[in-house]
């Protein structure tokens, strides 16, 4: 298993290289001067040239790319074009916010999705099953930015309530931090949990009809034991595969969530970078996203073995 993990980690390198190349040249293919974004509409030609020189954007593209790549390999992704801050420092400052959002939203997604998926399968065609399926349609059909916007504005209109704005680190004020985090992450989790619900329900229904489950029942095992010990565990393998892909979706959702709820995480940083055409920020954040997604997929692959001892990695 260790050898397998090492091989997968080594495989990360060419993928990251390709991602970086694609991102670098894709951002440069957009015509025009990013300097205008930063210097404003009345910038003079000399100001634009000085700005480009200052940020090394007057050099050949290959030089710019390898300069950036060298910096990343040394652990220094460079400075933001917008403000000159060190991107590494920004990443470190903002990472806890995004991690907390991902942790909560992924946690809610898994708990809600699997719990209600299992209940829907066990109580197939009951009112609970129909309710869960209806909720799944609702959750999947409304995009996260809309749900989050409604979460902001409707309580404000009806009750003059809004979650407290202005980020507070969790350890400084846990209650306020939870007030800021729980409602939007719960809302963000609706879409993913709806998907998981449907997958869990379908997968579990398949397993519940399998021969070994019938055998377990015929042995006289309690239904609870049959479902939880024998069926659910095997039904979770496709669920886990989907859960791995949901990480990427939640990262995208986090970008929206952080902007709507004013939480200063990596999503907000990425969004600003894209809007401002901040090359260095875009490059770094795309690489960060690629690493997180690849790591999530690796983790899912490794978890298969935990769920199903028959799976072996060589």
């Amino acid at each position: 298993m260790w050898a397998y993990t090492l091989r997968r980690l080594i495989f990360f390198l060419p993928v990251l290289l390709i991602v970086s190349l694609l991102t670098f040249f894709a951002t440069r293919l957009v015509p025009g001067e990013p300097a205008l974004t930063f210097l404003g509409q009345q910038a003079r030609i000399e100001e634009i040239e000085a700005w480009n020189r200052h940020h090394g954007l007057d050099r050949p593209l290959a030089v710019q790319y390898f300069d950036w790549l060298g910096g990343v390999l040394r652990g220094d992704p460079g400075e933001s074009l917008a403000g000159g801050q060190n991107i590494g420092s920004e990443l470190r400052a903002r990472l806890p916010v995004t991690l907390m959002i991902l942790l909560f939203s992924f946690g809610f997604t898994m708990v809600i999705g699997i719990t209600f998926g299992v209940l829907a399968a066990v109580f197939q065609d009951s009112w609970l099953d129909h309710s869960v399926r209806l909720f799944a349609v609702f959750g999947q059909s409304i995009p996260p930015f809309y749900k989050l916007t409604l979460l902001m504005i409707l309580p404000a209109i009806w009750w003059e309530y809004a979650p407290p704005f202005g980020y507070v680190p969790f350890w400084n004020d846990p209650l306020r931090a939870l007030q800021q985090i729980i409602p939007p992450t719960l809302m963000l989790a609706i879409g993913g949990s709806a998907t998981l619900m449907r997958i869990t329900r379908t997968s579990l229904l398949d397993v519940l009809r399998a021969d070994y489950v019938r055998t377990a029942r015929s042995k006289g095992l309690k239904e609870r034991s049959v479902v939880l010990r024998h069926a659910v565990r095997n039904a979770l393998i496709p669920v886990l595969t989907i859960a791995g892909t949901l990480i990427a979706a939640l990262m995208g959702g986090s970008l929206i969530l952080e902007n709507i709820t004013s939480l200063p995480g990596l999503g907000q940083y990425t969004f600003n970078g894209v809007i401002q055409r901040d090359y260095n920020v875009i490059m770094t954040m795309v690489m960060y996203a690629a690493i997180v997604v690849m790591s999530a997929h690796l983790a899912v692959d490794l978890l298969y073995a935990v769920l199903d001892p028959r799976i072996r990695y060589r």
């Binding site: 809309y146 409604l150 409707l154 309580p155 309530y161 979650p163 407290p164 729980i182 409602p183």
Partner: peptide
């Protein structure tokens, strides 16, 4: 958005309030 879905999330929003306390 408000016009289109006004009222749709009242219950949910109320639940959030109850769960998270008020700081209005």
């Amino acid at each position: 958005r408000r016009r289109m879905l006004g009222g749709a999330l009242a219950t949910g929003a109320g639940a959030f309030l109850a769960a998270c306390g008020g700081d209005s």
